[in-house]
Computed example of a mutant assay.
Amino acid sequence: MKTILKRYRAFIIVAVAILILTIFNFELGMKALNITAYSFKEMILVIPPVFVLLGLLDIWVPREIMIKYMGEGSGLKGILLSIFIGSAAAGPLYGAFPVAAVFMKKGVKFSNILIFIGAWSTTKIPMLLFEVTSLGMKFTVTRLLIDIPGIIIIAAILAKLVSKEEVKKIYQNAEKFDQ
């Protein structure tokens, strides 16, 4: 029982907070509940397809291929592939983290994983199409010319700042993702 309470303590705290909020301000509490229900529905629609695709990636793409194209010695090829995969992705940013965990299991270089997450969050193709139609080609190209080098630079800095031991722990936690 204690382990269940410990595991779900954040959920329980938030549920109690919303309950208290609803008691003191019914309208605001109901708004919070509606937002929570909408977010939950959105996650239920996104997470299952992500996990199906992750299962296929895990089975169909051998570790050696991932290491060759995105591992330690991949260089520019790994960077470009990370940007392309992140840009071609669909769905909210929280969908990128299970993909990153599978990439870690497959031996993808840490900086390439950071680039992938950065590309997922800022250079998605549907978002670019929306920007072109809403804000114009000049804005979109300018933003990309700033964002892509920025993502690469930030990933390189983070890869240097995070100790090898910490990266090893992160990769070990990704291995537990399967279990």
Rank of each mutant, 00 (worst) to 15 (best):
K2P: 08
K6G: 07
R7E: 10
I12R: 07
A15G: 14
V16R: 00
I20M: 12
F24N: 14
F24G: 06
F26P: 04
L28F: 11
N34R: 04
T36Q: 02
T36L: 09
S39W: 05
M43C: 12
I44Q: 03
V46F: 10
I47A: 15
P49Y: 01
V50I: 15
F51D: 03
F51T: 00
L57H: 11
W60K: 06
R63D: 12
E64S: 14
I65Q: 06
M66Y: 09
Y69R: 11
M70A: 04
M70E: 01
G71D: 00
G71V: 01
E72F: 02
K77V: 09
I79C: 12
L80D: 05
F84S: 13
G86C: 06
S87T: 09
L93E: 12
A96N: 06
P98L: 00
K105R: 15
K106N: 01
I113P: 08
L114Q: 07
L114E: 05
L114D: 09
I115T: 11
T122S: 13
P126N: 00
L135V: 03
L135W: 01
K138W: 07
T142G: 07
I148E: 04
I148C: 02
I151M: 07
I151P: 13
I151D: 10
I152P: 03
L158K: 08
A159R: 01
K160G: 07
L161F: 13
V167C: 04
K168M: 02
Q172K: 11
D178K: 14
